[in-house]
Design a protein around this nucleic acid. Structure first.
Length: 437
RNA sequence: GUGGUCGUAGCUCAGCUGGUAGAGCACCGGGUUGUGGUCCCGGGGGUCGCGGGUUCAAGUCCCGUCGAUCACCCCA
């Protein structure tokens, strides 16, 4: 029986997932990120320390616990993202790490929310972060979208757009406007797509103490969107001035312009996005997959200047995380990915009779020694059945022992003489191929 | 966590106002004493998600529960 929110894939889907993970991993490493794995659990107060009290955290409990109601101090919870555990890890090991520290982490995370399509309670995230001691140069903020863009380019998936904003722009703008509760304004404006400008304006007046004019200005800011640097002029044209606003605009401009040079069309400044996690202090990212916009962001992250510290030393960071399970779940659900075979096997060695198994196994060994995934037919059934065994699984070759041996490409029907010591399948057939459907 | 919709063979679905289950595809076997994908013939497979209730009788009505999905919340 399935458990709600805990998806499990079938073998062909798992082949796709592993190849996707291989691409993600190799791309991360191309940019110099080191792999890290942290434990699944963190002390509850670590998980909740950054004000994420609304998070649905799964708790860990022993069956034989003496008194479940007592000892809440050292309560453990499953992590709900990879950034908070990473920040904890950095502070814990700061003496052994070299900064700036670039790491990637591909692990399961857990959130006790109501599942829907593309929303799970247990899911895989692929996360990169850069952390430095004291201050982190801003150019790392511009690197994040480039890494993600390269990952997506290497995968057979629809085009994606990375939406970028900067909290300093919003906070500076709101403050320059005379609104003090910038967090509340941000939360309200974030609902723009859902409830529309009229309701957002009304809510701003009601909950954030805005005047009609202030509310209108907030909406005007939220409407701004561009794939080049023109957004900055449009913001300035709104006539609000504030040092933080200027700083934010400069940063956002760098992200957009860097992306425009290295990956045209990938990034768009979108001044209405906010991102839920409230530890972000500057740049924020989210990603829309073309054709899947209604399922929300498949990648998100941002800059956090205050997440980690030891004594009075700060460890600011910036990171972004790919929602691997969401991405795959959506694509699987829409039958958008195909794989050339459902098993790793490249060659099936036919078996003429059960007492010839040793001979077939010798051929299989010879092929395996040279890296060709090979299995011997499970029974000495009629050759037609053995070919069918391969065909059902999408295995491209069937090998017939004989004098001489022959190998048949069952897609074309072509059968040629072959020597197990030298025969090589076409490179594309060595492993299952994942493609868009 | 709150509310709505849905849940019949592996898959897609049929089953009228309640009378104890069917099709196509898939699968297995045979025609084809041994190199498949066509065709023909035959076959297996369903506690109608699960539990309870109403009724002489429930796939069909009611309640609960689990699962899928949608909205809210939140977010990958």
């Amino acid at each position: 029986m399935p458990i709600s929110g805990f998806p499990e894939w079938l073998p062909p889907q798992r082949i796709i997932e592993q190849q996707v993970l291989d691409k993600i991993r190799s791309t991360f490493e191309l940019y110099g990120y080191s792999s890290l794995e942290t434990r699944a659990v963190e002390p509850l107060d670590t998980l909740l320390s950054k004000g994420e009290t609304s998070k649905e955290v799964y708790l860990l409990r022993r069956l034989q616990e003496d008194d479940p109601s007592a000892k809440q101090d050292d309560q453990l919870g499953l992590h709900f993202d990879l950034t908070v555990p990473f920040a904890r890890f950095v502070t814990e090991n700061n003496g052994k790490l070299q900064f700036p520290f670039k790491r990637y982490q591909i692990q399961k995370v857990w959130r006790g929310e109501r599942p829907q399509e593309g929303r799970y309670r247990e899911f895989l995230q692929a996360d990169i972060d850069v952390v430095n001691r004291d201050t982190l140069p801003f150019h790392f903020d511009t690197e994040m979208p480039l890494v993600i863009g390269d990952v997506f380019k290497s995968l057979p998936i629809p085009d994606a757009t990375i939406l970028v904003n900067n909290r300093k722009v919003c906070e500076g703008f709101y403050r320059g406007l005379g609104l003090e509760d910038t967090a509340q304004v941000l939360r309200t404006v974030d609902k723009l797509d859902k409830i529309g400008p009229e309701k957002v304006a009304a809510a701003l007046v009601e909950t954030a103490g805005a005047t009609d004019a202030q509310a209108a200005a907030c909406l005007a800011l939220a409407e701004i969107s561009s794939t080049d640097g023109s957004f900055a002029d449009r913001v300035r044209a709104l006539g609000v001035s504030d040092p933080l606003l200027d700083e934010g605009l400069g940063e956002l401009l760098q992200v957009v312009e860097t992306a425009a040079e290295h990956a045209p069309g990938l990034v768009r400044a979108e001044l209405k996005i906010a991102r839920g996690l409230d530890y972000y202090t500057g740049t924020v990212y989210e990603t829309m997959l073309q054709g899947y916009e209604r399922f929300g962001s498949i990648t998100s992250g941002g800059r956090y200047d205050n997440l980690a510290s030891v004594g009075n030393t700060r460890f600011p960071g910036v990171g972004i995380s790919i929602g691997v399970s969401r991405l795959l779940g959506l694509l699987f659900g829409h039958d958008a990915l195909a794989v050339s075979r459902s098993v790793p096997t490249c060659v099936v060695i036919a078996l003429a009779a059960e007492d010839k198994r040793a001979e077939s196994e010798r051929i299989a060994s010879a092929l395996r020694r040279r890296g060709i995934a090979t299995e011997v037919a499970p029974t000495a059934a009629k050759f037609g059945k053995q070919i069918q065994y391969a065909d059902r699984r999408g295995i491209p070759f069937v090998w017939f022992p004989g004098e001489p041996d022959t190998v048949k490409d069952i897609r074309s029907g072509e059968q040629v003489e072959a020597d197990a010591a030298t025969w090589q399948p076409p490179a594309v057939d060595l492993h299952p191929n994942v493609s868009a459907r």
